[in-house]
Computed example of a mutant assay.
Amino acid sequence: MREFNITMLGARYVGKTSLLTSMYHEYQEEIEKTTIKINTDTRTASLLGKTLADLKSLNADSSNEGIKPTEFIGVDPKEIKPFIFEVGQKGKKSEIKLNFWDYPGVWNTEDIGEQKDKYVMNKIKESVAILIAIDTPALMAAKGKWHHKQNHPLQIINRFNKCYADLKSPRLVILAPIKCESYVQDEKSRQELTNKIKQEYKVLLDLFQSEALADKVAVVITPVQTVGNIFFSYIDVRQNTPLFRFKKQNPDAEYSPKDNEQPLKYLLRFLLALHLNNRLWGFFRDWFKWDEYLKQAIRDFAKDCKDSDGFEVVQGKKLLDIN
Rank of each mutant, 00 (worst) to 15 (best):
R2A: 11
E3V: 13
I6F: 08
M8R: 02
A11P: 01
R12I: 11
R12W: 07
Y13K: 11
G15T: 06
S18V: 08
S18T: 13
L19K: 09
M23C: 14
Y24F: 14
H25K: 11
Q28G: 10
E32I: 03
T34Y: 14
T34W: 11
K37A: 05
I38K: 07
T40M: 15
D41C: 04
D41T: 05
T42S: 12
A45R: 04
A53Q: 13
N59I: 10
D61Q: 08
S63W: 06
E65T: 11
K68V: 07
P69H: 04
F72A: 04
G74H: 04
V75K: 12
I80L: 09
I80G: 00
K81Y: 05
P82M: 02
I84K: 12
I84L: 10
E86A: 10
V87S: 04
G88D: 02
G91Y: 02
P104G: 05
G105Q: 04
V106T: 12
W107Q: 07
N108E: 08
N108L: 13
T109S: 15
I112T: 11
K116V: 06
K118Q: 10
K123I: 05
K123S: 02
K125S: 10
K125Y: 03
V128H: 13
I130M: 09
L131D: 03
A133T: 14
D135C: 00
A138R: 05
L139R: 09
A141C: 06
A141E: 14
A142N: 12
K143R: 11
W146Y: 15
H148L: 02
H148I: 07
K149S: 09
K149C: 01
N161S: 07
Y164W: 12
K168V: 13
S169D: 10
P170Q: 01
R171C: 08
I174R: 01
A176D: 06
D186E: 05
E187N: 11
R190F: 01
L193R: 06
Q199K: 13
S210D: 12
A212R: 12
A212M: 06
A214G: 00
V227A: 02
N229T: 01
I230P: 00
S233R: 11
Q239V: 11
T241V: 13
L243F: 14
F244I: 08
N250I: 00
D252R: 05
A253Y: 02
A253G: 09
S256W: 01
S256V: 03
D259F: 03
D259Y: 06
Q262M: 10
P263K: 11
L267D: 02
L268I: 10
L268V: 09
F270V: 13
L271F: 07
L272H: 09
A273W: 03
H275P: 05
H275S: 10
N278G: 13
W281P: 00
W281C: 11
F283L: 14
D286A: 14
W287H: 12
F288M: 10
F288K: 14
L294C: 08
K295V: 05
R299N: 13
R299T: 14
C305H: 01
K306L: 14
K306G: 02
F311H: 08
V313Y: 01
K317G: 03
K318Y: 03
L319A: 08
L319F: 10
L320H: 01
L320K: 01
